[in-house]
Design a protein around this nucleic acid. Structure first.
Lengths: 211, 211
DNA sequence: TTAGCTATGTAACATTTGATACATAATTAA
DNA sequence: TTAATTATGTATCAAATGTTACATAGCTAA
């Protein structure tokens, strides 16, 4: 079963022999929407390969303020865990399933072993790191250069892409949490967007008209 | 000469045989304060190993706004170039020598070759990526959770550590540029710090009293 | 020496964001 | 059904940040 899933999503990425190995040592898991996969301070000894769904990665500082960083989707992996495993250091981020998702977990020892054996694994690891660095740069861009209205609009349209659905089931409170601001600020801006005919507001639901 | 420098700074990091290889293919370069090492859009085909000094890495968006991200110091490398080399993609960051610095450059082809051959190289690459991700997370923290006064104070004290000098030769304008704000805001906050006896202000110079 | 440039100080005001308070509507649980 | 809970709308005020304007001081080049 793992084999078929891998073939479906990672056939171009990994060479045949590597897919065989992953099939042998990997464990498959389905996670439900809102399930917590990785918490702050967790020691993570498995590398996740996302098969389907979306995992929201967020960051929390020592004072408990939290901010959403990016989403992991099909083909992605969590590079943060690469480091967690090697030095058994603790995770600085949190991962929660945004929607039902399918994941294969690989024991962390394989990270280094396969770097030696498989060219496709070397490429995958380096690429994954670079994608993650790019996402972090984008997050920094957003925080450093955008005002809250632009950040909010980016948040909404990014989410539309991730969910492949122009109707978002979410509350103002949850959005405020993800953007580390207050609910009132979000309600105020959303109402402006509605007046500009960019969105339509409902209870627990936002329809994005213009994206 | 490269050999001695490597022995001095990277002896614990790299195994003997790898130091031999680096000595063979690496080129040594001294760069002057304010020298531009890597610009936006550059294709970078060499991996830099920092021997001494400090390189300021900053990021610019499409509109030309810029923000300082972090410093590279002895023992650091620029992971961004790892990706630049593999896919000949273009750099999204800028690197400028903050002070006179010494660097060894390694051809990018060696990145993958040595991943197979040397355990110490695998550890170095993974560690470097993880350190970089941590620095990015710290930058995100700062942007997301701190007000400008805290950001400024962190900027000053970080710089004291990097320069190993409590007297910073810089202008309010330059600081404003690094923090992506206006000169007036920086002058205002610095004056407050001075009134609180945390710093002393001079022309082109700031003395940090409390750090 | 003097004119021009750069750095800094500061006032006044605008805009953005955050905080508090309270009202109403929709949903859920008793 | 009724009470409690949750989501949303909105006014008011406070704080943080950004903008413009102008003054003064120090430095530099003619």
């Amino acid at each position: 079963m793992i084999r078929e899933k891998l073939k479906e999503y990672y056939n171009v990425v990994f060479e045949e022999a590597l897919i065989d190995e992953i099939t042998k040592v990997g464990t498959f898991k389905k996670v439900r929407e809102n399930e917590l996969l990785l918490d702050l301070g967790d020691k993570f000894d498995k590398i996740p390969l996302i098969l389907s769904g979306a995992i929201k990665i967020s960051h929390e500082n020592t004072k408990g303020d939290e901010i959403a960083l990016y989403f992991l989707e099909r083909g992605d992996t969590c590079t943060i865990t690469f480091g967690c495993g090697l030095h058994s250091s603790k995770s600085k981020v949190r991962g929660v399933a945004e929607i039902d998702s399918e994941i294969i977990f690989i024991p962390i020892e394989k990270l280094e072993e396969w770097l030696v054996k498989y060219k496709s694994w070397r490429t995958f690891v380096i690429d994954s790191y670079n994608i993650r660095l790019s996402e972090m740069l984008e997050a920094i861009d957003t925080l450093a250069f955008m005002k809250m209205d632009q950040r909010l609009y980016k948040y909404l349209t990014d989410k539309v892409k991730i969910m492949r659905n122009t109707t978002l089931n979410t509350t103002h409170r949850d959005i405020a949490h993800d953007l580390n601001t207050s609910r009132v600020v979000i309600s105020r801006l959303l109402k402006q967007f509605e007046n500009d005919n960019k969105i339509k507001l409902f209870r627990n639901k936002i329809e994005i008209l213009d994206y």
